Simulated scan of single mutants.
Amino acid sequence: MTAQSNLDERVLDEALAWQAALERDDADWDGYMAWLEADPRHRQAFDSIALTTAMVEEHKDAVGSLFDVQGEQAIPRPHRRMKWALGVGIVAVLALAIGLPLRQQEPAPSVYAADAGKSRAVALANGANILLSPASRIVVHGKDAARIELASGEAFFAVRHDPSRMLTIEAGPYRIIDIGTRFSVNLSGGTFRVGVSEGAVAVASDKAEGEVRLQAGQQLTGGANGDLTLAPVAVADVGSWRAGRLSYSDAPLALVVADISRYSGKRVIIDPSLETRHFSGTLVIGDGSRLLPDLATVMGVAVHSQAGGAVRLGGADR
């Protein structure tokens, strides 16, 4: 085996290790980005593994049968199965498994969801690394994952700069256009918020003309009526849930309460007298049980139990 082959196998081993590491809650995103930037082959290896994983998953029954035929002595470990598929070529593997040439087709959307009480890391082949907050969900469209839909909740995006591609994140009626940056998007309670901690994004809406451009240290909030508000935000507060806290700067109360519902698992109703209120401050997440009482204390309002296990913020007992 040549020195080049040894290096290639080492790079694949590292890429496989990073793919597994990014699935953990305590994923080292800074270390991963440093590894990607250290050598152009790192990105190529990681992208190849991500693509192979997706295609093998799509045709897992056929590919599994093929691997069974190969025998465990030839390919004794799971990660060697992946490297074997990469070496032979995934298209050839699938052609052998299925017995028919594969036709290029648009893949079905991929759905990624985080369970309640637990975040989830997602690494896409196009260089987008996403951390989903608990009880959040995204839908990835297209073979190049150029369009990502935030269906609910909040997600933090770390995207490498690549002038040859444009990434679009959809959140309700809003579209975030990214060219390489770090930002957090929240779609909760009929409200929208995007905050940028590095780089820049452009935001467009079906309810407004033109685009709004955000730089690092800025956030854009949209209400149910489609009004957009651009304001400064501390970079450390962008995606603050990753550090165990929820930080808000003049956020619609509906967004705050929707976040609390996700983390506490309780349905929270806002009293009509508070519907137009906004909130600025920081709440410690913990196990989620103290979020609503802490918010009520800061705002000087009460929390009332409702039928069916729901709770209401503000107003009198009913």
Rank of each mutant, 00 (worst) to 15 (best):
T297R: 14
V91A: 15
M55T: 07
V88M: 07
G314L: 09
E275C: 00
A97Q: 06
A135T: 07
V196I: 09
A158P: 02
N126H: 00
N186F: 09
R77H: 12
G190K: 00
V201W: 00
V203P: 01
L36C: 08
R318M: 06
A15V: 09
K118S: 10
V238N: 13
F192C: 04
I179G: 12
L16W: 05
G281C: 03
I260P: 02
E198Y: 01
V159E: 13
Y32C: 15
T168A: 05
N6P: 13
A204K: 10
V194G: 05
P293H: 03
A85I: 08
P163V: 12
D271L: 10
E149T: 14
V233A: 06
G222K: 09
E106L: 05
A200Q: 12
G172V: 08
H161F: 14
A54K: 10
L228G: 00
N129L: 13
I130L: 02
L283R: 01
A302S: 14
H161Y: 08
P107F: 08
H141T: 07
V139K: 10
G222Q: 13
E14P: 12
G308A: 02
A316W: 06
A128S: 14
A113N: 06
R120G: 05
R120W: 08
V159I: 15
E154V: 09
G223F: 09
G217W: 11
A17N: 05
R193T: 03
A158G: 05
Q105T: 15
G223E: 12
A135I: 07
V88C: 03
T297Y: 12
D227K: 08
I176N: 00
A128K: 12
A116C: 06
D13V: 13
L102N: 06
R290M: 14
A236F: 00
P109R: 00
R165P: 03
P163D: 12
V311C: 01
A216C: 05
D144A: 07
P78C: 10
G117K: 08
G217S: 11
R165L: 13
Q19Y: 14
A202K: 01
A231R: 04
A231L: 06
Q218I: 06
T221K: 01
D287R: 04
P134L: 09
A45L: 14
L295A: 04
D30G: 03
L291T: 04
A20Y: 11
W29C: 00
K83Y: 11
D61P: 00
E57C: 11
V88H: 01
S261I: 13
A113G: 07
